[in-house]
Design a binder for these strands. Structure first.
Lengths: 333, 333
DNA sequence: CCATCTTTTGGAATGCTGTGCAAATTTGCA
DNA sequence: TGCAAATTTGCACAGCATTCCAAAAGATGG
């Protein structure tokens, strides 16, 4: 029982059936080409009957526009990343592009291979979502003429386009919120991942604290995620340092922290402990958490990506977007 | 400041530089082709110096193997879907394929367009993850010679390969668990989505209940998700029906249900209320929930996808995988 | 009805790589 | 060293669609 896989129809076959030239077929499916209504109709009918579908591989070969946008992303299963993925794929599809997802999880070599795919498939652009790939790899792409869009990465790479969410403003506001709530012992919960966005939030908060003359404890007890948040709470509440206000650089960290603090150390939020997160993932709004956090403007980010692609990449300078404060119940008003 | 985008290097240029024929270059980058070590080295050096990357579009054109696998998926931002996406992309990348994600969210026309891309890019295969696309659309793909792999969809389509997680067994066990816990008033929380997997779980549970002679209330108050779970709890606890045991066809529904039941109706889990979910998303294991649920064997599913691709699609019949019971604290033992 | 201007059409070239085939080279062995 | 066998190499073609160009057809105006 071998595959009776039908070999795909090509333009010539359609042309033959419609009684026109191959060029006519091509023109029918090329936006803005000159075909008479009559032949177009003939071609369309023939194409439908035969089940013809333009071969985008061949098209990309000549037109130098593959229609493919590569998205380099790690930790796809994470709520924030998947939300971004959702928004971006939707937006790009709407403009006729197609998204190739390259999972950068795992070994560095895997990432490197993934990055090469970007070049192999002559992607129209590559969107790099934080994390994984070392700058040098991104540089390779740029050097090979790839249009690269960096999301929440602050590497200063010539020839890339950056879209950043303002962490400094958010961090400063977070500090303010905690202090206004009367928090004395403030900690910032971060991770060992060292991802650009994580680091940015971490230092932004530290800087703001230093300026305000407040001491904060910086915690890095593991990778970015729920488990590390919980572990951090354990470390802090088991030791002398018992914070009454924490800024977590990620919602996931915050949720883990809250859970451990509440279940294992009987802290009440926000009475004994104020918690602030970052990202505004769906879970932050769940009744068990009601986490105060900062929302990343995903739609706006996607819009910018679209604009950059359409404009042919001549947008000047990095694009800085404000994060929106989402007040919920994890901080005393 | 226009883009000085370098036009990509092609095999001819590499050949010229290395002083060999273009075929030699092609062979160097083709697995299992015959090239002497000497020329291979020359070619590799030249390629590296020039920054050559095989054009996979052109390669796919001749070899009839684009190396692209399309993944049709809706609700990407959902924990289960994104987890699946993560596992599948990883697995496929490891075997040298590349994943094109087609987001089927939104209008039916968008889905249709997405599905066409599968044909346009001559994907080696299309993986359809539940939900969105109507059977007829999938049929179109099959008719056009696409290799189609259906995940958790029970449409009986000639020429497709199915991978299913056994919902009947899980549902039966769920019922058993609730009854053993002494639950009298049992409800099954489903959604209006009507997705094949959802429906399967729903009817499996109902059938099991009927066989056991137990009455269960079937609830469908909205789309599959946290909010609907919460809403369902509100409806049930505000009315006369006050279940003491519920089977939710999705973890997300379960978590929403638990939250509303606890916060708004003071139910204690598992003392007053036993809850069972399905999928075992990450959040189910969080300290706030500790949801008893059924885990889908994502890795195994990915393995099967890989196998199907490698075998050229001659695996016989649907593949049925058992769901693994994950005991946590939301059900009395 | 003819000359002129548009629009449409087909032919041929282009983009890039994989591969069958025959020629050329290297290797193996006596 | 000489000959058969095994590799390696280059040529040319295939694969599919886009696009320039010139020719054909149609439209417009006098």
């Amino acid at each position: 029982m071998n595959k009776p896989i039908r070999t795909p129809i090509n333009a010539q076959q359609v042309a033959d059936r419609a009684g026109v030239s191959r060029s006519a077929v091509s023109r029918t499916f090329t936006e803005g080409a000159s075909v008479s209504e009559a032949t177009r109709a003939k071609v369309l009918r023939a194409a439908a009957e035969l089940g013809y579908h333009v071969n985008h591989l061949a098209r990309g070969l000549t037109s130098q526009q593959s229609g493919i946008v590569c998205l380099l992303i790690g930790e796809i299963a994470t709520p924030y990343q998947s939300a971004l993925l959702d928004v971006v794929t939707r937006r790009l599809q709407a403009m006729g592009k197609v998204v190739m997802v390259l999972n950068t999880a795992g070994q560095a070599e895997a990432t490197e291979a993934a990055l090469r795919q970007t070049l192999n498939y002559r992607a129209d652009a590559t969107v790099v979502v934080s994390g994984s790939p070392r700058s040098s790899l991104v540089e390779t792409c740029v050097a090979n003429g790839q249009r690269v869009i960096l999301i929440n990465r602050d590497d200063l790479l010539e020839g890339t386009q950056q879209i950043l969410v303002d962490s400094a403003g958010a961090a400063a506001e977070a500090l303010m919120m905690l202090r206004r709530a009367g928090c004395d012992r403030i900690a910032v919960v971060s991770s060992t991942a060292g991802t650009p966005s994580i680091v940015a939030r971490e230092v932004s908060f530290s800087v703001a604290a230093a300026q305000a003359g407040v001491d904060v404890q910086l915690c890095r007890f593991g990778p970015t995620g729920y488990a590390t948040g919980a572990e951090t709470a354990r470390q802090l509440f088991a030791s002398a340092a018992r914070p009454d206000g924490v800024f977590c650089v990620t919602d996931l960290l915050a949720l883990g922290f809250m859970d451990a603090a509440r279940k294992e150390f009987d802290r009440r939020v926000p009475d004994d402990l104020c918690v602030i997160g970052f990202d505004d993932i769906a879970q932050a709004g769940w009744a068990s958490y009601e986490l105060t956090t900062f929302r990343q403007p995903l739609d706006t980010m996607a819009d910018h990506i679209a604009t950059i692609l359409e404009s042919g990449g001549l947008v000047a300078g990095p694009i800085n977007l404000p994060a929106q404060t989402v007040w919920r119940r994890s901080v005393r008003p």
